[in-house]
Amino acid sequence: MVWFGELTTPAQLYRRGLWFLLPAVVWILGLLVIPGLSLVALSFAERGQYGEVVWNFTLENYARLLGFGLFGWSPDTVLILLRSLWVAFVTTLICVLLAYPLAFFIASRPPRTRYLWLALVIIPFWTNLVIRTYAWQMLLAPDFPFAKLAQTLGLLAPDAGLYPSPLAVYIGMITAFLPFVVMPLFSSVERLDWSLVEAAQDLYASRVRTFFQAVWPQTLPGLTVGVILTFIPAMGMFVVPDLLGGAKYLLVGNLIQQQFYASRDWPYGAAVSLGLMVMTLVGLALYRRRGKDVDLV
């Protein structure tokens, strides 16, 4: 802090500090916090006949979220929620499994080329996700070698493509999120204390044991950041399932988007968004407990 001569009391300092603070805080409060909170109010409202919002208190949107519709209970929306959790979980897991070899490989390069390799991981990630996702549409199309191979192996009906399918969604998700895990993990691996690994080997620990007792705990800070940066946005992802999943593999993100576009049912859309927010906050709470001393960015 700056205690300039003419300012001596905290009150005077605060007054000046407010000029720096207020524009950004008011902006974020006005466009993110208050609208976010008003989603809560909106989720208890009703949809009017023409898609307008009618302010009658109702719990119906939440009942629908849990599957209670006009025609009794159906598992559709619950399935979408659970599927989003599952897809986010599997995506994160595969990203972590792929990120470890990559992080160790990059960390083992000579210092001169190390950052070049790291740049190679980030460069594809600078391309817009929409582009990378539609590229996978083509790569998984029926007349492309991948699908042809699956067709000859009998895994796929002749002339069928590999998308839309759950597999395509996972591929798209991994393309989207892998760098998010590799980057923080690499920063942990680079600072790894190898003397612990040597000690473990000197004491005849097996490879698996060496990894889990000497390496894994040291990479935990980076891993936690990577997992959070992947898991949370993966749950709300809507571009990838939209372009690669098809109508049978909807995720929460698609459900929300439908409410604000095709169905024009804002109250229900708000309820679904809050459902997603709750799942996110649970994820964040777990992160806070596990990785207190890790910077998020």
Partner: peptide, 8 residues
């Protein structure tokens, strides 16, 4: 999550 951001 950016979709909630957008909806807000």
């Amino acid at each position: 999550p950016d979709i909630i951001f957008a909806v807000a």
